[in-house]
């Protein structure tokens, strides 16, 4: 009865050859195409470096003013404005300004990329059930696969530094953007669409003037989630050489520096709360008209 208790596994040698085959295949792929792929991503790298330099060159009062201004425009809440200004000031005062700017620059690029990629994919998914059936499992994989697993091939292809870090962050932060865009558009009332049809709207007009505006609160929730998840990935991205707040956290972990880890961790939290409050209250304000309709 051995065959019942012993799992019929691939022989040790076969398994090894199998793994070796995959590894060798990937290695020859990187040798062949690695440089081309690296060149392909070069504009992105240049943009990242440019943005980081820009943020670092921006006088700090100006940066705080811009964030506070954005907070006011988005939320019209004095509490949010003061809260963001004070926490940014504290971050700078505690010596984390430069790392914070690096982190902000990578988060901005990541968010822009996620919106640029996620919006069209989400729209495509909402228009075709087949596309949804194909994309959904891919999103599941992207969200659940341990990030260390794809760090290996990303580093082999692109080396260490900003771009591979950005890619691993995008892989993790993109799914909510796609999912919520898809959901938002699918949730638009059928009657509204029928009304649009009755007015003779073309599919493009329907999409840009009816569906997307009505889905905006959900899309904004997606942007918000994307920002939150990319901030959560900052520490992992630092493991492959992305500068920013993640690096002192890693250093603190390996050296048991309690205060250093706590301060930098709290700076990430502060950034997250600032981004979250601003984007969420903007999303909420977009929904205000709904309250008006119901009353």
């Amino acid at each position: 009865m051995d065959w019942l208790t012993e799992f019929p596994e691939l022989g040790r040698r076969d398994l090894r050859d199998f793994r070796k085959g995959i590894d060798e295949g990937f290695k020859s792929f990187t040798r062949e195409y690695g440089e081309g792929i690296e060149n392909f991503f070069d504009p992105l790298l240049q943009f990242l470096i440019w943005l980081e330099k820009l943020l670092l060159a921006t006088p700090w009062p100006l940066f705080i003013l811009i964030v506070a201004g954005l907070g006011w425009l988005a939320s019209r809440s004095i509490k949010i404005v003061i809260g963001s200004a004070v926490s940014l000031f504290l971050i700078g005062y505690l010596g984390m300004w430069e790392d914070t700017m690096s982190t902000v620059s990578i988060i901005i690029v990541c968010t822009l990329l996620c919106i640029g990629l996620g919006l069209p994919i989400g729209i495509m998914m909402s228009r075709s059930n087949r596309a949804q059936a194909i994309v959904t499992p891919v999103l599941d994989v992207m969200q659940t696969i341990p990030s260390f697993v794809y760090l290996i091939p990303v580093v082999m292809l692109l080396g260490i530094g900003k771009v591979p870090g950005l890619i691993s962050v995008v892989i993790y932060a993109l799914p909510p953007m796609i999912r919520l865009t898809n959901l938002g558009i699918r949730l638009v009332d059928r009657e509204v669409l029928e009304a649009a049809d009755a007015f003779g709207a073309s599919p493009w007009q329907k999409l840009t003037q009816v569906q997307i505006p009505l889905a905006l609160p959900n899309i904004f929730a997606g942007v918000n989630q994307t920002i939150m998840m990319s901030l959560a990935m900052v520490v992992i991205a630092s493991m492959i050489g992305v500068t920013g707040l993640g690096q002192p956290v890693l250093k603190a972990i390996s050296n048991q520096y309690l205060a250093m880890g706590l301060l930098n961790g709290l700076a990430i939290v502060a950034l997250a709360i600032i981004f979250d409050r601003i984007s969420q209250s903007y999303g909420k304000r977009l929904q205000n008209y709904r309250g008006g309709q119901d009353e």
């Binding site: 990187t30 290996i152 580093v155 260490i160 050489g241 690096q247 890693l250």
Partner: peptide, 13 residues
């Protein structure tokens, strides 16, 4: 290099 894995990766690449 960020981590031991990052250092190793840069050498392998």
């Amino acid at each position: 290099t960020g981590s031991g894995a990052g250092l190793d990766g840069s050498i392998a690449k």
